[in-house]
């Protein structure tokens, strides 16, 4: 399977190791992974802030880069959801482009969803040990139905204990530029999420979207919690001691 990896702008910038972890997992599942070099950002920030023209330009750019692949996979529910559901809507006024958007949307997957349902990855490369809880990111969960997939993968690690926190499906308060525009509200929402996770005494809060993870990590550290780790599930699945 020829899989195009959409690294995502946040992973590129902040956590390259998540990108490499995704690469490792896809290769472990037997995929040939292509990383288009020209990729930048899927354009969701433009779309969510009402800049349709640039959202459309960035959508077309990404479509051109990835439409040759058999699948597009992103280690982010948010970006995958934007390609899957945002692109056809953004390009609704341009039939040719919309058709291309729909074709790409049909083969676009969030990483965990792809590994479980398409690539059927059985054996995880890592051997992470510890007690974790999983935060369901909004777009992945409500946009793409990503809920059981990452849990199924994580539970294949024999030394990993998964415990559910209250309100796992509630938003962490990130919301893209919302986190900067309404920083105080965003941080207050994140605080509730952190408390729910801390109440379980976990070693790590794990999720599938870097935006949420940076938000949660930033809040934990500000709250004085230097212990609780915040990790992408791809990092957990590939972690080796």
């Amino acid at each position: 399977m020829r899989v195009g990896l959409l690294v995502t702008c946040l992973v590129d910038l902040m956590r390259p190791r998540i990108g490499f972890a995704a690469l490792e997992l896809l290769e472990a599942a037997g995929c040939t992974v292509i990383v288009p070099e020209q990729q930048t950002c899927c354009g969701q920030p433009a779309w969510n802030n009402g800049d349709r023209a640039n959202a459309a330009r960035l959508a077309k750019k990404l479509i051109t880069e990835f439409e040759g692949c058999e699948y597009l996979v992103a280690p982010s529910g948010s970006c995958a959801d934007h390609v899957r559901h945002g692109y056809p809507r953004i390009l609704a006024d341009e039939p040719t482009w919309q058709a291309r958007a729909q074709a790409l949307a049909a083969k676009t997957h969030e990483l965990a969803d792809f590994l479980v349902r398409i690539a059927c990855l059985q054996k995880m490369p890592g051997n992470f040990a510890g007690r974790i809880t999983y935060h369901d990111s909004c777009s992945g969960l409500r946009g793409l139905g990503v809920k059981e997939q990452p849990r199924a993968l994580l539970q294949k690690l024999p030394a990993l204990e998964l415990v559910e926190m209250r309100g796992a499906e509630e938003c962490c308060g990130f919301g893209g530029t919302f986190s900067v525009k309404f920083g105080a509200v965003s941080a207050a929402i994140a605080e509730r999420k952190c408390h729910q996770a801390q109440a379980l005494g976990v070693d790590a809060i794990v999720g599938g979207d870097l935006g949420c993870l940076l938000n949660i990590e930033g809040k934990l550290r500000r709250m004085g919690d230097a212990q609780t780790k915040v990790m992408h599930f791809a990092e957990v699945l590939t972690a080796k001691d």
């Binding site: 590129d12 910038l13 902040m14 390259p16 490499f20 900067v180 525009k181 965003s186 605080e191 930033g218």
Partner: peptide, 27 residues
């Protein structure tokens, strides 16, 4: 703990440090 370009972010939380190089560069 204080990011002048995004004060809204660091008002209520830290901005985690990046790893240091972009994925692109390392790849």
């Amino acid at each position: 703990s204080v990011l002048a370009a995004a004060p809204g972010w660091t008002m209520g939380r830290n901005f985690p440090a990046p790893e240091g190089e972009t994925f692109r560069t390392r790849y």
